[in-house]
């Protein structure tokens, strides 16, 4: 009797396992095939893309598409701009947010709660809504078409979320750590950089990923503030391929593949860290 029940639940388990696998594989195809398809057509000529072989891998690797994308267009330049802007945004955001969170979570001063809540307003304001005043501000300060004109607003907008996460994390660090440092005669800055920051590492690595992805994919602010070709970030620079290449899908695909490759490789290598970071992000926020 007991055995019969057992085998029945086992069958049920097996069935649900198969069902789960089908779901996972089906979505994997939807998620992955369009990207593979783009890589495929980046090696094809128009005849192959449109008529003879729209779905499968290319019959011959037409590297001239890649050559064209690299030499005629500024893909490497856009990429560099994106890297500079994203990395500077991450560095500045983490630096400012850590200091701000520490001062509001630990130190004693009038208005510390007011300051914290005030900055956290930033989390609920969509970046897009302040585009117009921001454009005018940047114009009046004569800052258009510089790296700073992107880094500063990106940092300001990431500040709220980052300092909220760090604030939550700091509250969970025992205060005895600092007391011990204080008794040993360390000053506040030494304590902060030698004791607090290393303890915040898990939260900081989460924020690096969050902030980097935000900056990397930011579009509206860059669209409004950057007009010069040499200052464009990837999202902006690649935009104009659609018009230029409408008949040349191969080169368009090649340009997009070149632009995507470095981040994809980076992600595949660091995917474990990304997951770990997201787990912590999920636990800390709020």
């Amino acid at each position: 009797m007991e055995r019969a029940v057992n085998s029945k639940t086992k069958n049920k388990l097996k069935f649900s396992n198969i069902f789960y696998r089908i779901c996972l594989w089906a979505y994997a195809i939807l998620s992955f095939y369009p990207i593979v398809w783009m890589i495929f057509y980046s090696f094809k000529n128009n005849d192959e893309i449109f008529v003879s072989n729209p779905f499968g891998p290319p019959t011959t690797l037409r590297l001239e598409n890649y050559f064209k994308a690299l030499t005629q267009y500024n893909v490497p330049k856009y990429f560099l701009n994106s890297v500079v802007v994203s990395i500077c945004t991450v560095a500045l955001t983490i630096l400012l947010a850590t200091m701000f969170a520490y001062a509001t979570a630990r130190m004693k001063w009038k208005g510390q709660n007011v300051a914290r809540i005030f900055v956290s307003i930033g989390m609920f304001i969509p970046v897009q809504s302040i585009l117009i005043p921001l454009a005018i501000l940047v114009r009046d300060l004569n800052l258009s078409n510089r790296y700073l004109s992107l880094i500063v607003p990106y940092t300001a907008f990431n500040l709220a979320f980052s300092s909220m996460v760090l604030y939550g994390f700091l509250r969970s660090i025992p205060i005895e750590l600092e007391e011990a440092a204080c008794i040993d005669g360390a000053g506040i800055f030494t304590t902060f950089s030698k004791i607090i920051v290393p303890n915040l590492k898990p939260a900081i690595s989460t924020l690096i990923i969050f902030t980097f992805l935000q900056a990397w994919n930011e579009f509206p602010i860059a669209l409004i503030l950057i007009t010069e070709e040499s200052m464009k970030t990837l999202p902006l620079g690649l935009l104009f391929f659609q018009g230029q290449f409408t008949t040349d899908w191969g080169a368009m695909g090649a340009a997009m593949a070149i632009a995507s490759l470095p981040t994809v490789i980076m992600y595949v290598f660091f995917s474990n860290q990304v997951e770990k970071a997201l787990t912590i992000g999920g636990a800390v926020k709020g």
Partner: peptide
Amino acid sequence: FSNKKAIAIFVLPSLILFIVVVFYPL
């Protein structure tokens, strides 16, 4: 924990940035 100079150094850059780039435009 109530080192005034340290508090200013920690808080002011963020506050100023936030006020100028987010709050004032808002």
